[in-house]
C-alpha cells in the first residue's frame, strides 16, 4: 500500500518538475523564469523527501534543508537584481 502510493506520488512530483521546467524554458519574461526556478526547487524538496521515505534513509534531509535555504536566497537575490539592478546595496 505504502510502496504503491509512494510510486504514484513520485510520478506526480516528477510531472510537476517537468511542468515547472517547461515554464523555465518557455517563460516569456524574466520574473516567469524566476518563479519557475522557485517552484522547481520546492518540487525538488518534495522529490528528495519522497525518495528518502522510499529508501528508508534519513540522509536526504540535509540536502532538502540546504536546497530550501539556497533556493530562497537565490530567488530573493534575483528579484533584488530585477528591482534595483544591484544585489548588495
Amino acid at each position: 500500500m505504502l510502496a504503491i502510493s509512494i510510486q504514484i506520488a513520485l510520478t506526480l512530483v516528477t510531472a510537476a518538475v517537468v511542468m515547472s521546467f517547461w515554464r523555465l524554458l518557455r517563460g516569456p519574461d524574466t520574473p516567469d523564469r524566476i518563479l519557475a526556478l522557485d517552484t522547481l526547487y520546492v518540487n525538488t524538496i518534495a522529490l528528495l523527501v519522497l525518495f528518502g521515505i522510499y529508501l528508508g534513509s534519513a540522509l536526504f534531509f540535509e540536502a532538502a534543508l540546504l536546497i530550501a535555504l539556497m533556493g530562497f536566497i537565490g530567488t530573493v537575490a534575483l528579484c533584488k537584481y530585477l528591482l534595483r539592478g544591484d544585489i548588495i546595496e
Partner: peptide
Amino acid sequence: FLSFLILTGAIFTFIGSLGLLRLKDL
C-alpha cells in the same frame, strides 16, 4: 494515514505546477 498524506501532498504539488503551466499571466 501515511499513504493519504503522501498522495494529498503529491497531488497538491502537481496542481501547483499545473497552475504554473495553465494560467495566462504572471
